[in-house]
Design a binder for these strands. Structure first.
Length: 485
DNA sequence: ATAGGGTTAG
């Protein structure tokens, strides 16, 4: 029976499924290496030193999956080793993957065990080794552990550099522990490492986020003493901090100062937008528009962020005509397109419960060949799907797809539509949607797949059941991978 | 390294 085979394929795929197709490709290249790794787990780096061949993220991720879950130690040592190779560099994505796979946040000790193993086995350890470890803690957002790593370096006769201090300082700033961050910054000076612009920007951001504006401003003096001149980025951080705490007069003074200073301190679109946004939030639309004029007068073009907060504001006040005029004006500046602005307007209208107008504008965009952005599409499709117009939602999805729309809509929406279509027995659309999902490699998340299986069990539509079963079979294993990491 | 509405995929 068809239904039986679905649930059987579901449960067997939980137990036996083998992560990714790439594993197969990679086994051909490196199966030996992996087997060696697993046999001589004590000598990972020595085994790896015999490895010759291209190292890429696919390969690295394949090995990591092989080591999961019982060989975390080996997996991490492989990951660190890979990060040391000159022809390869882990991307943040890969750090994140390793971090999630081996649950570094829950098991921070794993990495200390690796460091201890290096010591016990007299492995060669360099500054770069510690950098890879630090980056793993960065992904895991573990400030204390990252600091311990920094403290371990001298035991290996190594010294941290400015980027490593910056990484740890950043973690403490994010955590809001500005005292430790400050101690670390001072410590840099003691060991002949000078804080750089990145250090100061992080510190300024950190101080602002905990409301220590005076300390943030004091950085101006500290950095100048060290021969590091403040630039627009640092100024912008401080300006943002002042805005956030509501002192708009002081914010405008600082903006003045930046304009007068000029050069590398000259405000840019981020600086102005930050001020405009705060005025909008406070309901001071007039002041926001003055800042807009001011930036345009200085040849600084508003971008999507600038435009969208003003559009949002006009929309909230019901000043739609002015929103349209504003759009014409900012688009002329060249920093933002009609597509982006109208998309923002669609989003704002919907947020202000002017759904019908949002839909009208959205339709107008499609008919005029303007591509709405991901958020606007997601919002409109969701509106249709949850408002009992599932088929319309699907058709909209299909229409957007046919426009060659590359940026994706919220991936949950495909699942939501699929469930809706199945529930209402729209077999033809459901089958088409599944095919689209397969083509776009959209994964079905576990709560949705349960609903689908339930629906199929009850369905008398044999054609639907046959088609979906056939199609779902091929991506159920992927679902299992996704829910496991 | 600065704003933000959730910005590729790996």
């Amino acid at each position: 029976m068809v239904l039986f085979s679905i649930s059987r394929s579901l449960s067997s795929s939980v137990r036996f499924q083998n992560p990714k197709v790439s594993i197969v490709q990679f086994s051909v290249v490196s199966g030996d290496i992996l087997n060696h790794l697993q046999e001589n787990s004590g000598n990972v780096e020595k085994t790896l030193s015999t490895f010759k061949g291209p190292l890429d993220s696919k390969f690295v991720s394949g090995v990591l999956h092989r080591c999961y879950p019982s060989q975390s130690h080996t997996g991490l040592r492989f990951f660190i080793w890979a990060g040391l190779q000159s022809d390869y560099r882990h991307t943040p994505y890969m750090y994140n993957k390793a971090c999630k796979l081996f649950s570094i946040s829950q098991n921070p000790k794993l990495l200390f065990d690796v460091i201890e193993a290096y010591r016990a086995e007299r492995c060669s350890v360099t500054v770069k080794t510690f950098k890879v470890v630090l980056n793993l803690y960065k992904q895991a957002k573990l400030a204390d552990e990252a600091l311990l790593v920094l403290r371990k370096m001298p035991e290996f006769g190594l010294r941290a550099d400015t980027t490593m201090y910056n990484l740890v300082i950043r973690l403490f700033c994010v955590k809001g522990d500005m005292n430790t961050a400050e101690t670390l910054m001072k410590e840099m000076g003691l060991i002949d490492l000078y804080p750089d612009m990145i250090t100061y920007v992080e510190m300024a951001k950190g101080f602002c986020s905990v409301g220590r504006l005076d300390d943030a401003f004091r950085l101006f003096e500290v950095m100048k003493e060290h021969g590091c001149l403040p630039d627009k980025v640092l100024y912008s951080v401080l300006l943002h901090g002042i805005c956030k705490f509501g002192n708009m007069e002081k914010a405008l003074e600082l903006l003045d100062e930046m304009e007068k200073e000029g050069g590398s301190c000259s405000p840019n679109v981020v600086t102005y937008t930050s001020v405009i946004q705060r005025f909008c939030e406070k309901g001071q639309t007039l002041e926001a528009l003055e800042v807009l004029n001011r930036m345009e007068a200085r040849n600084c073009s508003p971008n999507r962020v600038t435009a969208s907060c003003l559009i949002e504001r006009f929309c909230l006040e019901g000043r739609l005509n002015e929103a349209y005029k504003l759009i014409d004006k900012v688009v002329k500046g060249g920093g933002v397109s009609y597509e982006e602005c109208y998309s923002s307007l669609v989003v704002s209208l919907k947020r202000n419960e002017r759904t019908e107008e949002a839909e009208k504008l959205f339709r107008k965009m499609l008919d005029g060949g303007l591509k709405p952005d991901g958020l606007a599409c997601s919002i409109m499709i969701k509106e249709l799907a949850s408002g009992g117009r599932v088929v319309d939602g699907y058709e909209l999805c299909d229409e957007i797809e046919k426009m060659g729309y590359l940026t994706s809509i919220d991936s949950d929406l495909y699942s939501l539509l699929l469930v809706g279509l199945c529930e209402r027995n729209h077999s033809v659309e459901a089958v088409k949607l599944v095919k689209l999902m397969l083509m776009k490699k959209i994964k079905l998340k576990s709560p949705y797949i349960d609903s689908i299986v339930e629906i199929l069990k009850k369905s008398r539509d044999e054609e639907l059941v046959n088609h979906l079963t056939e199609n779902l079979k091929s991506f159920i294993p992927k679902v299992i991978i996704d829910s496991s990491n």
